[in-house]
Design a protein around this nucleic acid. Sequence first.
DNA 1: ACAGGCGGGACTTCCCGTTTAT
DNA 2: ATAAACGGGAAGTCCCGCCTGT
Lengths: 211, 211, 211, 211
Amino acid sequence: MKDRVTAAETANRGKRLYDPVETRRRILDTAAGAFQARGYHATGMHEIMRDGRVTGGALYHHFPTKKALGLAVIRERVAPAVEETWIVPVRSAATAQAGILAVFEQIAADLERRGAVMGCPLNNLAHELSLADSDFRAAMDAIFTAWRDAIAERLRSEPVAAGSGDRDADALATFVVASYSGAMALAKTGQDAGRLRASARQLARLLPGPD
Amino acid sequence: MKDRVTAAETANRGKRLYDPVETRRRILDTAAGAFQARGYHATGMHEIMRDGRVTGGALYHHFPTKKALGLAVIRERVAPAVEETWIVPVRSAATAQAGILAVFEQIAADLERRGAVMGCPLNNLAHELSLADSDFRAAMDAIFTAWRDAIAERLRSEPVAAGSGDRDADALATFVVASYSGAMALAKTGQDAGRLRASARQLARLLPGPD
Amino acid sequence: MKDRVTAAETANRGKRLYDPVETRRRILDTAAGAFQARGYHATGMHEIMRDGRVTGGALYHHFPTKKALGLAVIRERVAPAVEETWIVPVRSAATAQAGILAVFEQIAADLERRGAVMGCPLNNLAHELSLADSDFRAAMDAIFTAWRDAIAERLRSEPVAAGSGDRDADALATFVVASYSGAMALAKTGQDAGRLRASARQLARLLPGPD
Amino acid sequence: MKDRVTAAETANRGKRLYDPVETRRRILDTAAGAFQARGYHATGMHEIMRDGRVTGGALYHHFPTKKALGLAVIRERVAPAVEETWIVPVRSAATAQAGILAVFEQIAADLERRGAVMGCPLNNLAHELSLADSDFRAAMDAIFTAWRDAIAERLRSEPVAAGSGDRDADALATFVVASYSGAMALAKTGQDAGRLRASARQLARLLPGPD
DNA sequence: ACAGGCGGGACTTCCCGTTTAT
DNA sequence: ATAAACGGGAAGTCCCGCCTGT
């Protein structure tokens, strides 16, 4: 007669956890942090194993290649981050102008509180990877597009004055994303959140609103 | 005890160029191209040797580490490129607005002619390296600053209407650099120069001029 | 982006040994032999891979740096060798004098049988490494100390005549180790085991015993 | 008509010294120091160039290979050092015993004053190189032999008691050299000059003299 | 005599991916 | 699912020696 608890006992042999969801989460979090801090190529799989307390077997089980891990980070960590910090706030703001400026301000405040400017995760990876690999490029372009579309949609919902059609909303939304991305690049290279605020003030003049 | 170098058998006679200036130039050009196309970490020193037709000895003689080569590329290739494509045209343009928009337009046209968007060399390297190494960061921040200052100076020379003091010129110049940098990031990730043009149109509305 | 490892094509099936203990043993044996024969710095990691039939991956897995390998060789090969050739024989000998001279004699006989004098592994590495690296120095000093202490302990157990206290035993034991080490250096440089025997004869006059 | 001072003027162009004797001396001194401190294989030619302020051309001019430099260091720096610290003092001492013990004592005092034990230059190089290369081995064996012979000669000049013939003097001299070499190895590995003194006290009991 | 650019390869380290074993 | 040994090769660095030019 088989002992019914054998499996469970075996599972806890040594220090194995056998919690695939948690393991996968830890790998993604560790990788996302490392890719953001050091970049994709400068991060070795071994570092992720060490920092995330996972062994090669576990890592390979969840992500067969580094590229697969990179794509998962983009889709499951970077995209939600953009959604959370940009799309949701802009959608729920009173006006597009108010929402956009509030995001700039909140991010600038975050940077100052943290004392260091890590840059935008999407842009960091986009610059490093989008030329070299088209799968990465496509994944990141999808995020940029969703980001821009969310802003454009919010802009279109405004009761605006004359002559601002759909094309204007798209172009303006693109410009908002571009301004933010570039301002973040400047802030990161200068380690100075002030550049983000200076850019926000200029952008404000362009956005429809009470000025 | 082994004598590893056994004389080279007098082979390869006369193959030496003995032109250090040319050798150094070729290394820098090759490295600048490779860093731009594939990124710093994704480029191997051996690739640079092969593509630039230099041996390890020559490369090591001129640049003892990859970092030294990277810094030289930034200072001797990236900085002059920014000078040439941005600073000189903006300085010599009739108005700041005209100069800035002309640069956007020319770069967009270049991209379309080339059929691919490689991105801005400075921003590409800035995103990959500025967090990881402060020497790189400082070298690139100096270029960003010079770039912004040149635009700010041009803006201040305009006979403008009310309320645009020095601080406004600096902030606006920062914003110009940020918009361009971010628009280029979007264009690169989407492989679409249109995003650069769309951003230029929006920026135009902010710049002093005949509108 | 290049995927460097393209699958190994399922070739070399079944070639893996998967015997970490045996692999580690082979690495240490090969390294110990090479360090002894050619010295630490003159031995390349690739030589160890080739001679020990281990791949880079396996070597790196067991010993992440050459220094780690060197320390392991000292602790797991050199120390046991001293234990076996000196400490055990001296401890089990009838008298200290008899034990010490027997060791000298046996080693001299070994050298003559082998036809070459390789020197004492501990002294060889000690001279090459103890100045440059304090971890190596400490590891080797521990062996020298254990060696001396074992001889001193044996000396103290003798029913000696007048005035030989603990300090004398320690000093004499130190001198035994020094004489052997130096005699081995002379024998190695002269490739002449006779120098070892000549030194043993002189040392004998100093040791308590029937003379 | 040729200008007579042209050569001298040309000679001082830039910072060239054109003092071959001084250049050669500086190379040898630098190399001797580096070989002593780090070992032969661990010292690169480039280090010698940097530390000795000589260029590759000058170094290669005086010593076509590293091995030639190593042999020159042995013959022109190590051998004179042994002559100076051992042979001359032993020859000029009142008795062999007095001379030998004085050398031990002076060297121990030197080590303590310096605060670090660098070891015996001859033994350091002998252990690293004598197995690998027979030219080095022969050069160093010649120094060991001269050293021993000088001591043996001094011992033979003593009006000794019974039964100490030539062979005894040679064997005892060999033992003196061995004791010193080994004691120095112990002192170096333990960074403790006391081991040298302890060995000297034991050796004293063996040397003919007032005891 | 000396300066230094250069050739070509070996060095240690570390990479990513795979396989065996639990 | 997880752990860890392992394969095979590429990474950046640095080596010694040579060679041209002053």
